[in-house]
Design a protein around this nucleic acid. Structure first.
Lengths: 208, 208
DNA sequence: TCGCTACTGTACCGCAAGTGCAGTTTCAAG
DNA sequence: CTTGAAACTGCACTTGCGGTACAGTAGCGA
């Protein structure tokens, strides 16, 4: 059938190789020639799959968004199984995420979208649009969890829940940057745990 | 005297131009030829000042660190004048920062260090070392303010203050990334205000 | 055996980084 | 007024990368 054609396999290997390289050293520092050498095809072969480097970026982003969002859903699902309480669910999910981050290798850590974000004005409109979609998806995801929490536990501080939802994604993005700057992966897990502390303080009753 | 030599002025113009370009479109997308065209010197002139692009990066980072840390100190100083209470000082400082971020233009927003952080393995050891220094300086800065707060107001949650200090810098870094991805500057100010909310909840007494 | 998919091979262009070096202007100290 | 260092210019050249163009071909399923 068409679903597992040979071309798809090569394309996937290119995307996988590119993702590793991009997370390790950035998009513009990743050369096409380096990718084809690792995958074992020629330059012509590369341009058979992608019109140009920008289209590679778009495909990488598309792929990243898909896996990232399904990972997020999986964690939410797992948390749902582990507790009935909306606050506990959110806290469990953040703990799961922190544990995931502690186990990831330095070279593979980072966000494909964020690595492209800092090269703003050289990326295409389509890439920019998909980046925006991703942030909005994160916002929706955390917002819906926060809504469930706020319904049962009134927040202790007057904050906009969309902004708190953004913070959930933002703290992680910031933690990645700090981890890269410090060359210390541990800060990622740590930062998520501090975010958890905020959620606890914001909603959890009976904390003095 | 040696302090305001002509060479220093040209070098400074190069660094200033480079910083604007890098914040707008990233380091690797910023070409030397574009810089010299704007500054009005030749390629040879550029290489008289910097051995290569990496040395430019190092000088930019050095310059950025200096101005960033002095800006931070200035805000802390201003907050010190406005209140005697350590918690209020920190909250005021964050508010000042949020206001600064709301007023900055999109092209000039961002952190020179962070824009280089995502190109990790192609930057020199020296640049990496200075990036580390910067994060540690941020940590020290916020940590000392947090220590003052914690002395008077015991924290409501068992968190490591170094990690909270990292979060102060991290939320900002994350907010920059989100702002770039969303093309919406407002999230930067918003995120700092949520961070403020955390500090309030963590330390402020009498909140229910 | 036909034709499509998935490539290879070759040749070439333009741009940016970087090298090397000789020559020139500017300006301040002797 | 001269001299010499600082701050460049000018030119020629190399390498690497992104990208174009296009002809040819191996494998494979209908």
């Amino acid at each position: 059938m068409g679903s597992l054609r040979k071309g798809e396999a090569t394309r996937e290997r290119l995307l996988e190789t590119a993702e590793r390289a991009v997370l390790d050293k950035g998009f513009s520092a990743t050369s096409i020639e380096e990718l084809i050498a690792e995958v074992g095809i020629t330059k012509s072969g590369f341009f058979y799959h992608f019109r140009d480097k920008n289209e590679l970026a778009l495909a990488m982003l598309e792929r990243y968004i898909e896996t990232d969002l399904s990972e997020l859903s999986a964690f939410a699902e797992r948390a749902k199984q582990l507790s009935d309480d909306p606050l506990q669910r959110l806290l469990i999910m953040l703990k799961l995420y922190a544990e995931l981050l502690d186990g990831v290798t330095p070279e593979r850590s980072g966000c494909v979208a964020a690595s492209m974000a800092y090269q703003e004005n050289q990326i295409s409109r389509q890439v920019a649009a998909r980046m925006r979609d991703l942030v909005l998806a994160w916002r929706r995801h955390f917002r819906s969890m926060l809504d469930d929490v706020a319904e049962r536990y009134p927040p202790r501080d007057a904050v906009d829940l969309d902004t708190v939802a953004d913070m959930c994604a933002g703290v992680l993005q910031g933690a990645v940057v700090l981890a890269k700057m410090l060359k210390d992966q541990r800060v990622m897990g740590q930062q998520v745990m501090v975010l958890r502390s905020y959620i606890k303080l914001l909603f959890q009753p009976g904390l003095n």
